[in-house]
Amino acid sequence: MDFIIGHYNYWIAIFLMMIGFYTVISRGNLVKKIIGLNIFQVSVFLLYISMSTVKGGAAPIITAGVKLYSNPLPHVLILTAIVVGVATTALGLALVVRIKEAYGTIEEDEIHQQDHSL
């Protein structure tokens, strides 16, 4: 039981990562692919934050009387990653809008048909 609780966060993170990965490689709709990438991204955040947690620790804000804090460093890395992630999502969605204007569709199959590339 302790073994399962000790690894449960990592397994859920891997499960979410694989769901995101599956969405990216198996779905043809470009908006859904970007949502898949975002799910993948959240799973990485979850993995890092799980590693920073200390059992019985407090949030890393220095307060009198608190001895044990969670690790602040992964929090900093993930704060940066969230903001950069939104910037890349915005860029991806702008590309989707542009593809819709050029091809009239956001389905990967129809884009390949128009290009005769498959």
Partner: peptide
């Protein structure tokens, strides 16, 4: 819940 309050409000 995992003590990452800054990450939580950014997310």
């Amino acid at each position: 819940v995992m003590d990452a309050v800054d990450v939580a409000f950014t997310e």
